[in-house]
Amino acid sequence: MEQFKGTRFKRSDWGELRWILPFVLPAFALIALVILYPFGLAMYYSLTDYNLMRPLSRSFVGLGNYLEILRSGYFWDSLWKTTYFTLLSVGLEFVLGLWAAVFLNKKFRGRGFLRALIILPWALPTVVNGMMWQWIFDANYGALNGLLSQLGFIKHYVIWLGEPFMALNSVIVADVWKNFSFIALLLLAGLQTIPAELYEAATMDGASGWRRFWKVTFPLLKPSILVALVLRTIEAFKVFDIIYMMTKGGPADGTQVLSFYIYRESFQFLHLGFGAALSFMVSVGILILAVVYIKGLYTEVEY
């Protein structure tokens, strides 16, 4: 934008604009129609008691929905579960992803093959991933119980998805398996932009491998890390599909994360007003997370 500052709109620009506008306007109208309009409408709904079951008796309730959310036990319970899910899954994905990226950045035979392989979990649709892990975790016929009992680690089959806290952790495992590869890919791309001379210079100065990683790799990788963490945190915070496939929020609400709670309120009970208010609460949560990341991690990189 900088270079446009100060240039006045000239009469001769109109000729150009006359041709540009008709091409831009449809796209703009489309965006307004599919993003701005629903956004405004949802914000309005969040201030009403709109219930599809009684569509005619819609009335304005102000901040009533938001107050009810703050008083609702379901909300705090699912907020806690979502936070736990997000922290643990993104944390594990980051550690595994960073390790895989550093490993795949080294030169060795078969590296190309492994690099291609690591895309696989990420390329799998989440729904398919959810179904696959549901089968792996199946108490009677699942591969995990079969493996663990054959290796002698467990005597009785474990009902992985049958105990609330265990089920939440099991879903996290499935999510980590799929998404660590996404972080690995992003970080691998970041690693490849770091000039080799920097390592040579560091080695020359006598820096150990660990020190090279902390003093060279990590600071220069920060932008990639930032992008990876922001994207994954936002995704994890609004996780829905893998829960829907694997546990449907059960057992005993053990995996009822925020998105699933919103889905229940909006589409099972048809409380559109309440559901809209919940969605805005989640959006605010995500916004706060994003700001924290950017403030904490964003630094200009200079070589």
């Binding site: 105990e163 609330p164 057992p251 005993a252 609400d253 053990g254 009970f269």
Partner: peptide, 22 residues
């Protein structure tokens, strides 16, 4: 009930709380 989905949701949760020994 016109609000059967919600009735059922509460019952499902609480029966499950008993079945998982919560």
């Amino acid at each position: 009930l016109t609000w059967y989905s919600e009735f059922s949701r509460v019952l499902q949760l609480e029966v499950h709380n008993a079945l998982t020994q919560n």
